[in-house]
Design a protein around this nucleic acid. Sequence first.
DNA 1: AACAAATAGTACATATATGTATAATATACG
DNA 2: CGTATATTATACATATATGTACTATTTGTT
Lengths: 168, 168
Amino acid sequence: MIDAVNSFAPTEQRLAVTCRRHPAFPREPAVLVRLVKHLYKRLHDDANALLKPWGINHPEYNLLMMLYGTEGYTLSPSQLAAAAGEKSANITRLTDGLCDKGLIERTASDEDRRRIALTLTGAGVAMIKGFLPDVCTLLERQTSGLQPREAAQLEKLLKKFLDHLEQA
Amino acid sequence: MIDAVNSFAPTEQRLAVTCRRHPAFPREPAVLVRLVKHLYKRLHDDANALLKPWGINHPEYNLLMMLYGTEGYTLSPSQLAAAAGEKSANITRLTDGLCDKGLIERTASDEDRRRIALTLTGAGVAMIKGFLPDVCTLLERQTSGLQPREAAQLEKLLKKFLDHLEQA
DNA sequence: AACAAATAGTACATATATGTATAATATACG
DNA sequence: CGTATATTATACATATATGTACTATTTGTT
């Protein structure tokens, strides 16, 4: 093993001290919340680094991918917000940038005048096809430490965690 | 069941379409990355909301807790960055704010003149003791959908995921 | 001993993200 | 039908976060 030092150890150590001082402090939830945060920061940074040469950042990439996975490559800002996990104001800011880059376009909705339709352009589709191989490699590398069975179990548990958060 | 609609469904649906279009697209890693992101955003927002009446935000809370869990309530900025999972420039900005609020103080290090010692003040310790009950309640509620065995398994898998990210 | 390389922490310009007010429009209700 | 309520999307002021250059200092190397 190259280097078994666990980057989470400094965090866990401090939580252990807090638990000794306050036996009622819920160690497990505190550990889980911080693991999610550390993972998120790392995954976010790695994706930003890979996408930088393509002139987009991780959230922009995510929006493009959610449109790409939709019939007609089209979603409204509200739908895109839900699919991408972004606040509505951020959707406006991010989609402004993607429009400026010519990767998506905004058009009025036929059925509801309050709504806007966001659609991938030809350039947007081309860019996705361009970076997909690199992104696939990154994604595979990020989770290569997990066996398929473990990844499936992790998915199940993360979903359960998320579902319950949303019922509170 | 009150409302079984799964907030992650819009995301997963789009990933499924992408996988059909690109069989080599790694669905499992893409799902895991987005579950982590959705969880992080939600956990972050909930903590910010709870802490707002205390005049601090989630990252500031986290720094206070890492100091609280340390001998003498003292860490250097580098150590705090590692424990809290924050970039060094953010540590400077956040600790500036906590100093302004009188919750921590900066002093020179005896053993290394490049270093600074960050220490909780009496007011900082008092604030932690003040909000801990509410934070404990939030933490317990956030993970109450998971059985203890599931939470332990989730911790193990998240650690494995994180460890591997850091060996890349 | 002298110099090179690395580390610690910060300043600051820039990037990213958000809360909330607002206007326009659709839907619900009496 | 008229009015109230909810929804959609955005503007914009503010909050949060970061990359990188820099200075001071420590450690490593020759």
